[in-house]
Simulated scan of single mutants.
Amino acid sequence: MPTSGRRPRSGSRFGVSRWRERTARLVAAAKAAHRRAETRFPVVTHLAERMVSVNIFDTATRLAAQCFLTAVPLLFVFAAYAPPVVRDQLLRSMRSVFGLTGPVDTGVQQLMQPPNESLRQTTGVVGGLMVLISATAVSRAVQRLCQRAWAIPRGGIRVAPWRWVAWLALWIGALLLQGTLHNGFGLGVWLGIPVTLVCQTGLWWWTQHLLLGGRITWRPLLPGALLTAAALTALSGTARLYLPRTLDRTVAEYGSVGSVFVLLSWLIVVCLAATVSVSTGAVLAQEPFLATRLGSPPPGRDPEAQLP
């Protein structure tokens, strides 16, 4: 008589055990390959691990969003309260950095027109101060980037708020001077590129030291500053080739929403380059060859213990 339940075939059991054995062999082979890579290419493996711990795409996207949400209100504050010479300088810098032309340039000019009383009343002194205070969110985002790049545990840094404000003030001043730097003080791009590279190196060198609260000494921070400056200088050169045409086309097809999408996408690329460069610089500075020369703290150690 037929039975109600069927026993599993021995062949199926054999198939399951065979797949388990294959999976175990693949896992063992992957672990062995990882160990060989760590032995032969320690820099590559350390860099890959650091990129995963930094979570570069998430960090870059958050930083880009903070920059965009900060830039728009700051433009209104500049339009309402900045002196005419400062507004003109900011407009020249934006044209130089982004290569603004056509309707986008016209829109920015209208935004930066001399303010009327209604604009001042709408913005208000209190509103302007709130915008400046909320803009420190960018400072905090960059601080988290530097902290993750150097594998400093969460809560391991307590930075005084004045450092956030100081960082923001210096970068606003640097933005105002971008047009002058890109043009090489009026002498041409041939001088503007090395000047921009030197200035970017100094800014990112100082940024890491300031926002890390001095827990990492100056010399170990130099590789990250050089890499970040080189990446951002290269991107600033390509921005004038890519952004003007793309902005004009998207504004013509989709209106102002298209320009928001293009600018935010470009900011994500810029922030991703900065995130990767700072993290790579931290890994290189902690490799034995450079660590002994720069006095870098070993990976996974408390940097404060290495300070003199």
Results as ranks from 00 to 15, higher is better:
Arg301Gln: 13
Trp162Cys: 09
Phe289Ala: 11
Phe289Leu: 14
Gln66Phe: 13
Arg13Asp: 14
Pro194Tyr: 00
Pro8Phe: 01
Val126Met: 00
Ala33Phe: 13
Gly295Val: 04
Ala285Thr: 06
Ala82Asp: 09
Arg158Tyr: 08
Glu38Ser: 09
Gly127Gln: 06
Gly255Thr: 03
Phe57Asp: 14
Leu211Val: 10
Gln113Asp: 02
Gly155Trp: 02
Ala151Asp: 14
Arg25Trp: 06
Leu243Ala: 04
Arg20Thr: 14
Leu187Arg: 14
Pro83Arg: 02
Ala174His: 09
Gly173Pro: 01
Arg293Pro: 03
Tyr242Met: 15
Ile193Tyr: 10
Val104Lys: 10
Ile193Arg: 08
Leu232Thr: 10
Thr246Ser: 12
Gly102Lys: 07
Thr233Gln: 01
Thr123Cys: 05
Asn55Pro: 00
Val104Phe: 05
Tyr254Asp: 12
Thr238Gly: 12
Val27Pro: 08
Gly15Leu: 12
Trp266Lys: 06
Ala225Cys: 04
Gly173Cys: 04
Gln143Cys: 07
Leu47Asn: 01
Leu211Ser: 03
Asn183His: 06
Ala60Cys: 06
Leu75Ile: 06
His34Lys: 06
Pro161His: 01
Thr45Ser: 11
Gly300Ser: 10
Cys67Asn: 10
Leu284Asn: 00
Thr39Met: 13
Pro153Gly: 09
Ala166Met: 09
Leu145Tyr: 08
Ser279Thr: 06
Ile172Ser: 02
Arg92Gln: 09
Arg9Pro: 11
Ser118His: 11
Pro298Gln: 00
Ala252Asp: 09
Gly173Lys: 04
Pro297Ser: 10
Arg13Ile: 15
Leu307Ala: 07
Pro42Asn: 01
Arg219Gly: 02
Ile133Cys: 11
Ser12Val: 13
Gln306Ala: 15
Gln66Leu: 14
Ala135Gln: 03
Arg95Cys: 08
Gly127Pro: 02
Cys271Lys: 10
Pro194Glu: 07
Pro42Gly: 06
Leu181Met: 05
Thr246His: 09
Ser10Ile: 09
Arg301Gly: 13
Gly5Asn: 15
Gly281His: 10
Phe78Thr: 15
Asp88Ile: 06
Leu290Val: 08
Ala229Thr: 14
Val159Phe: 06
Val269Arg: 03
Phe68Ile: 04
Met112Gln: 12
Leu75Asp: 06
Trp171Phe: 12
Pro103Cys: 02
Ala169Met: 08
Ala30Phe: 09
Leu129His: 01
Thr217Phe: 04
Ala149Thr: 04
Ala274His: 03
Leu247Gly: 09
Trp19Phe: 15
Tyr81Val: 04
Leu284Ala: 13
Pro288His: 03
Trp218Tyr: 13
Gln121Met: 14
Arg7Asp: 11
Ala82Phe: 05
Pro73His: 05
Val198Phe: 04
Phe41Thr: 12
Gly128Gln: 00
Pro114Cys: 04
Ala48Gly: 13
Asp248Ala: 15
Val52Arg: 15
Phe14Asn: 13
Val262Asn: 03
Ala282Tyr: 00
Gln306Arg: 14
Ser12Phe: 03
Ala24Met: 00
